[in-house]
Design a protein around this nucleic acid. Structure first.
Lengths: 198, 198
DNA sequence: TGTGCCATGTAACGGGTTACATGATTGT
DNA sequence: ACAATCATGTAACCCGTTACATGGCACA
């Protein structure tokens, strides 16, 4: 699922401009995909050229008009197809975890910063989730999948935050004992047997 | 952190070939980054050209020799720099969650398949984690960050799996009630107010 | 007056995936 | 005999990020 497909999907909920779509992705899809203007606008142009969306421009004096995009029948069909055929992958890419894996090579306070910032970031996500929940509880209008996905996000984020809180201290003290940097090459910096399990 | 940096990081644990590195990434980093041969081999070639790794080839009759790569002092320094300076991002990209968000557009058994396959995938990851744990408990030789990162992965995966198990049925039945596809366009397929919160 | 939001787009660049191409060795 | 594993690499392609460029309107 690339940005084009994402746009088609979002447009199943109603017409929108590129700007609207970005906002929508940020509020609704934020914890499992991203899209910037640099990919959204070209995507919409291509979709229009392919006849999967139609574009209705509202002229504004002196500047480029606001463009409202609407899903066509072909666009809806295409999205449905994609939805059925796409393998539902789930991947995590985390420099955060990678960095922690190398805790023994990092200065202790850098380690603390990394942990604390991540905890803070999770908390921000959780509270913006909570806001979204309140909104949709009032309107009670979102798709049924929304609650499920939101619940999933909350559960996972909470578990992550709690783990970090509980084990934060242990990691910092343990990495202090095993630290390995230029200043104190106490135990030689090459392992005895290397990576390969041959 | 791109594949080049990943290779440098892995090589801090000992010399390895491109093939070894792929295996290492799969077993050790699997739940937070990926790298295929198509990126690893070019990366190693570039690193060698930049003097960040050295290459020692073991010739094999009739075929390209096995190439063992070793971190140079410059390579180690570069990796340490990157580690300190890189913003520790953590991003999830999930067609799985995206698909579930659109549960109301999917056939019910497709929904079941998606959920069951994800649960199964998580279980596979958890059991391969458990194997890794046994291995490193015997040798007691991994970096201190390894246990932490592994624990994090286990915690999060377990929470995810449990959530899916508990809410699986509810999603399927709820999406049945709200289903919206070509065959039964029961409630009109465009929302009253669209996406934008204006 | 200035900050932030609305609103659109382009262009260069970076970087990974997939498929292809090859072929010996080891285990069943 | 057949599959899996070891082992390296190339090239086309896909696709997203980042920075740039522009400018009015609303609110404090």
């Amino acid at each position: 699922m690339n940005v084009k497909d994402l746009c088609l999907g979002a447009l199943t909920f109603g017409d929108a401009s590129g700007y609207d779509l970005k906002k929508f992705f940020e509020t609704t899809f934020s914890h499992f995909c991203v899209a910037g203007y640099g990919s959204i606008y070209p995507a919409l142009a291509e979709l229009a050229a392919e006849g999967l969306v139609s574009c209705h421009e509202q002229p504004r004096q002196g500047r480029p008009g606001r463009k409202l995009y609407q899903l066509t029948a072909a666009g809806r069909k295409t999205f449905l197809q994609k939805l059925k055929k796409t393998a539902p992958r789930h991947t995590v890419k985390s420099d955060f975890l990678l960095s922690l894996y190398f805790a023994h090579l990092l200065p202790p306070q850098r380690l603390e910063t990394i942990l604390d910032e991540r905890i803070a970031a999770i908390e921000r996500q959780l509270s913006s989730h909570a806001q979204g929940k309140r909104r949709s509880a009032q309107e009670d209008d979102g798709p049924v999948g929304e609650k499920f996905v939101r619940g999933f996000g909350e559960t996972v984020l909470t578990a992550a935050r709690d783990y970090l809180r509980v084990h934060r201290h242990a990691l910092i003290t343990a990495s202090d004992l095993h630290r390995q940097d230029k200043k104190s090459p106490c135990r030689g910096n090459h392992s005895r047997h290397g990576i390969h399990n041959s």
